[in-house]
């Protein structure tokens, strides 16, 4: 969800030094994950030692999101948790990846938040909106405007780093902001009378969070990646089972260092997908319901916003075969 030119520069530098990691099978698979509920969920498998049980040698490395993509681009990781849009950005700047698993889609965590007096998207006409331009929140805003018969020209965009949006909204300098968790929740808490007027729950599939792996590693260690996916669905089951959900949330919350009660809210805005729920999204199609459609929209958006120049071959980035084989 969270990338910009800074990342591009980083990835470029990384790619410049990219020496393709050796395909030696003895090395453990290194997977970078970061602070997003759909990826924090991996922690449950790590804590429960299910990967060892499944007979696959993986190391999960905890990163800052941007740093994890840098490390992947530099060939230091074989897999990384990214959004489908960022997989394109990372690929366009040097490090191709294949998305083999969809962890979740944002289901309300990303929000357009109107300040006091803004009751709906239609009220935004002619208003100032704080948004980090070129990021997924920008994409969400465009979608909100489009569904309400407006375009970017009908509003005034103010470029604001996402983690500063709560303060900017509360200062009254803008009439609305676009942010994701935990910033969106902070803004709602901070600004009395503010409310979410459009969220990623209104457009499920706008942003998919995935496991992207390097094509070389996928070719060399396909069996191992299959095992990783199997563990993932064990984790999903553990989270969804009301008997074990409490334990799962506790593990996840401690990974990011917040109380479990607080973390529930973040998980609630994330639709973590079971295999049955995920498979339909892996079918080709247009629009946000399909990974292909959503990724195509992200590609168009990225090119339009000059995140990169050339459109990416979207189909080559998606490999549903592992999920289909489960």
């Amino acid at each position: 969800m969270k990338t910009t030119f800074r990342t591009r520069l980083g990835s470029l530098l990384g790619a410049a030094c990219l020496v393709l990691s050796s395909l030696a099978g003895a090395e453990p698979l290194k997977i970078g994950y970061s602070d997003w509920p759909g990826w924090v969920a991996w922690e449950v498998g790590v804590e429960k030692q299910w990967f060892k049980e499944a007979g696959v040698d993986v190391e999960f490395e905890w990163f800052d999101y941007v740093a994890s993509m840098d490390a992947f681009a530099a060939g230091q990781l074989q897999g990384v948790g990214m959004t489908n849009g960022d997989a394109l950005v990372t690929g366009a700047t040097g490090a191709r990846s294949v998305m083999v698993l969809v962890n979740d889609y944002s289901d309300g965590n990303d929000m357009v938040i109107g300040g006091p007096g803004i009751a709906g998207v239609k009220d935004l006409k002619g208003k100032k909106i704080g948004v980090e331009i070129g990021f997924v929140s920008h994409l969400l805003l465009l979608d909100a405007l489009k569904n309400n018969g407006m375009t970017e020209a009908d509003v005034e965009l103010v470029n604001v780093p996402t983690n500063e949006t709560p303060q900017v909204l509360s200062s009254g300098q803008v009439d609305a902001i676009v942010a994701w968790q935990p910033n969106s929740g902070m803004a709602l808490k901070l600004v009395p009378g503010s409310k979410a007027i459009y969220t990623s729950a209104d457009q499920p599939g706008l942003i998919y969070d995935v496991l992207a792996v390097s094509p070389e590693s996928l070719a060399a260690n396909r069996e191992d990646w299959m095992k990783v996916l199997k563990v993932w669905y064990r984790i999903v089951a553990y989270i969804n089972d009301p008997k074990t959900r409490g334990d799962a949330v506790k593990i996840m919350a401690s990974r990011v260092g917040v109380p479990p009660e607080e973390y529930e809210a973040f998980i609630a805005g994330t639709k973590i997908l079971t295999l049955e729920e995920a498979l339909p999204h892996m079918k080709k199609g247009d629009g946000f319901k399909s990974m292909y459609g959503s990724t195509q929209i992200a590609d168009d958006f990225n090119v339009a916003n000059k995140v990169y120049e050339k459109p990416q071959p979207v189909d080559a980035y998606i490999d549903p075969s592992l999920m289909n084989a489960l």
């Binding site: 490395e61 990163f63 740093a67 490390a71 990011v256 260092g257 917040v258 607080e262």
Partner: peptide
């Protein structure tokens, strides 16, 4: 400490600030 894997005391600060746990 924001480079590579996240670790160390300042990463702890960054992370806690993100969740607005300013006592930590």
């Amino acid at each position: 400490e924001l480079i590579g894997t996240s670790s160390g005391i300042t990463w702890f600060i960054t992370q806690q600030a993100r969740y607005k746990n300013f006592d930590n």
